[in-house]
Computed example of a mutant assay.
Amino acid sequence: MSEHSRPLSRSEEKRQRILETAMDMFCSQGFANTSMDAIAREADVSKQTIYSHFGSKDDLFVASIRTKCLQANLSEDLFNEQESVGQQLQRFARLFTELVLSDDAIRVFRTCISSADQLPHLGQLFFNEGPMNVITLLTLYLQRVTERGELAIANPHGAAVQLLMMLMGEGHLRRKLGLPYDTQSAAHHEYLRSSVELFLRGYRA
């Protein structure tokens, strides 16, 4: 049995339940209005259990964001060096947009925006653990393929941001406004394909 399919221990189950409960409450009630006591009651655990897993409410928020990225498979394991750069970036594009356009991601984004005046540090926590981690992941990959001579990118960080912003496209604008957008549609898949191809043409070695 693989690590990913093995049954969770009681401690892991509690941790997962705390994370899911916290994210739901942060998004529905707002970060400032969600107490650790309320999370403990809703998750059916003691407050001491929460603090044994997470040192503070900020740490719990950060862990929730990190977990969403890992569940979306946005990690170093995403890139398979046996495939072409185009194939790897196409897979990255699909997983990235499925995450960033998901209901959970949009809810967290709105929570940070609504809290920006009273809790500006919340946006920084989200940016560091979510967007910045993805930017760094893609930047390091683009550095590697540039060093191998497969692409010619003078500024991998800037190129990573360019690609990410292009991939978000109309879908992110629509989702932020509460409008429907289907990440499984043929139109979306074609948009991702053409965006990656445009990116590769621009940075072809």
Score class of each variant (00 low, 15 high):
K57I: 00
T111V: 09
S195W: 06
F126G: 02
E150Q: 12
R175C: 07
Q90T: 12
D37M: 10
G86Y: 07
S115P: 04
T136R: 13
A72H: 04
N80W: 11
Q82M: 05
L101Q: 05
Q118G: 08
A160H: 01
S115V: 08
L163M: 06
V100G: 02
I39C: 00
R66N: 10
I106P: 03
G55W: 07
Q71W: 06
D182H: 04
R204H: 12
K14C: 07
S194N: 10
L70S: 13
Q90F: 08
A152W: 05
Q48G: 09
Y141M: 06
Q90D: 15
K68C: 08
M25Y: 06
S102W: 08
G123E: 02
R175E: 05
H157Y: 13
L177E: 14
F96S: 04
C27K: 06
F126M: 13
Y141H: 14
M132R: 15
G149P: 02
R193H: 13
E3T: 15
H172K: 10
A160W: 02
T67A: 15
S185Q: 03
A205V: 09
S185W: 07
P156R: 12
A63G: 06
Y181R: 06
L200Q: 04
F92H: 03
V161C: 07
M165Y: 04
Q82S: 14
S115G: 06
L138T: 01
S52T: 11
R17T: 15
H189R: 14
E42N: 08
L164I: 13
A32E: 03
P7I: 11
L167S: 01
S114G: 08
L125F: 10
I153H: 00
I39Q: 01
S195F: 10
H53W: 03
S5T: 15
D24L: 13
R175A: 04
R174T: 07
H121M: 08
E83N: 13
E12M: 10
P120V: 02
R201L: 07
F54M: 02
K176R: 15
R144G: 05
D58M: 03
T183W: 02
G30Q: 01
E83S: 10
D37L: 10
S195E: 07
A40G: 01
L19P: 00
Q71M: 08
E13K: 15
N80S: 13
F199V: 03
G178P: 03
Y181E: 09
S114R: 12
F79A: 05
M1Y: 11
S64G: 15
I65G: 03
L89Y: 04
V134Y: 01
E76P: 02
R6F: 07
G158A: 12
Q82D: 14
T97F: 02
G178K: 10
F109N: 11
D77P: 00
F54W: 00
A159R: 08
K47I: 04
E197L: 04
V134R: 00
T146N: 11
Q118Y: 07
E83Q: 15
Q124A: 14
E190P: 02
N80M: 11
R107V: 04
R6P: 09
L167E: 00
A154D: 09
A187W: 06
